[in-house]
Simulated assay, not measured.
Amino acid sequence: MRPKKLANKVAVVTGGSRGIGKGIALAFADEGADVVITYLSNETKARETVLELESKGARALAVKGNVGDEADAVKLRDEIQKTFGKINILVNNAGTIGKEMPLKDMPTEEWDKLMNVDLRGVFLVSKYLIPLFDSRSVGKIINISSELSLKGRANFTHYVTAKGGINSLTRALALELAPDILVNAIAPGPVETDMILADMDPEWIEKETEIPLGRLGKIDEIAPVAVLLASDDGNFFCGQFISPNGGAVFN
């Protein structure tokens, strides 16, 4: 049996109770990590995910909160410190897509809501969890961006701008923290998640599948990229963007 790549590591995955975040959390547990997830409101889903993580042998913790709220970011830090004492991996995954609309028609509240979760959340969680990284090993921060940050998209200026901000934050923080903590980003193409299938109309999904591979991606095609970056296999990645996107954009 091969050694597990994340044995004795503690990983934090924001928005880890569903979608890509849950896929990454489970993949980390498969590789021996203990896992902390955050969730916004659905305690049932969070508890189900904790049970799945525990079934893989992981110690698991779910912390409720809005990543864009500073008090919740502080609470997350305190809960982790109390339960695990340190972390080795942080995946800033929590985010929302927002409503498709022209910028001229976009309510300021819609813009602010998306920026609060998708960009401010990455800032706050990183700010408060960086001091918890175990100095005895190389730490890893993985920010979840989007292929749309690389090519843009009409009527999604709020989302594209937030993800572009994550890209810039990744570059700056990589320079700031290396070599002790390595910061990288994953910029997935369109992925089949419950949020996409529930919130986006069929026309949007059809538009998203007009790529060389002609389909949405799968969560288990994204999670292994996170395992690569989180493990020692990723120790020469710094400030990089990996974009599994089915050919939606060539990076």
Rank of each mutant, 00 (worst) to 15 (best):
V12I: 10
T14R: 01
G19V: 00
G19M: 06
K22D: 06
I24V: 14
G32A: 06
A33K: 09
L40I: 12
L40Q: 07
N42A: 10
T44I: 13
K45M: 11
E48H: 13
V50I: 15
R59V: 06
A62G: 09
N66L: 09
E70R: 06
A71L: 10
A73M: 02
V74E: 07
K75W: 06
K82H: 11
I87L: 12
I87S: 05
I89E: 05
L90M: 11
N93P: 07
I97S: 12
K104A: 14
P107F: 11
T108Y: 14
K113Q: 10
K113C: 02
D118N: 15
L119E: 01
L119K: 00
V122K: 03
P131H: 10
S137H: 09
V138L: 08
I142S: 00
I144A: 12
S146H: 05
L148N: 02
F156Y: 15
A162L: 02
G164K: 13
G164A: 08
G164L: 14
T170S: 04
R171T: 15
D180A: 11
A185P: 04
P188L: 09
T193Q: 11
W204N: 09
W204Y: 14
L213K: 08
L213I: 15
R215F: 09
D220I: 07
A223T: 03
A230M: 02
S231V: 00
F236V: 06
F237M: 11
F237Y: 13
N245M: 04
G246T: 03
A248Q: 14
V249I: 13
N251L: 14
